[in-house]
Design a protein around this nucleic acid. Sequence first.
DNA 1: AGCCAGGCCAAGC
DNA 2: GCTTGGCATGGC
Length: 221
Amino acid sequence: MTLKDVYNKLLEKYGYQNWWPVHEGQNSIAEITFGAVLTQNTSWKNVEKALDNLIKHNMLDFEKVYYSDIEFLKELIRPAGFYNQKAKTLKAVSKLFLEKPHKDITREDLLSIKGVGKETADSILLYALNKPYFVIDAYTRRFLSRISLLSDKIDYDDYDSLQSFITQNIEMDLEVYKEFHALIVKHCKELCTKKPKCEICFFNCEVKITEGLKIEKRADS
DNA sequence: AGCCAGGCCAAGC
DNA sequence: GCTTGGCATGGC
């Protein structure tokens, strides 16, 4: 089974996820960028509340956020948690987007911002700026390590090596990158959960559940 | 009633 | 270098 087979199977089972943009008629680049920051270690439901607050106050906008009163900004994004640090990060990201033409914004530019790590940077690059960076997150690590599709030599905790391994084993295609990541998230919420539902999963992978909780590698294959 | 969510950073070994 | 704690809210 190739990575592309996995992608096709997920797509067949779950269909297109169409993550972004969420809100029609809004500044989708700002929405995606802010959403990527706000969702750090936070459920999307809470992010939605924060985004709704921003929309309500016409703040889905780099300039508005950059020049906003930070205490007010904190109040708006409060439901998304970690609001003290995220408010600063949103301002810093907005500054970058105001100062530099979007097409010239690089991964290094984003990573130099405090509060923006690799996953957030790659999410912004891929979904907001349409640049082919494959997003790695906790779900991707979990799913890919469980199906044991990649080389044994891969360190699933090393972001860069996992990312480059993936991009070397699937075609470079914006839509595939976007949809694949979204499908992995979907699958990890539905079946490949922390305590996986292998009995009803359509992948025959290397993981089985023993005694309800512990996960072990299968002896065979 | 904990535990967890689409991480990241800085301090402490 | 690697590990750990802090950051915060809301849903299940």
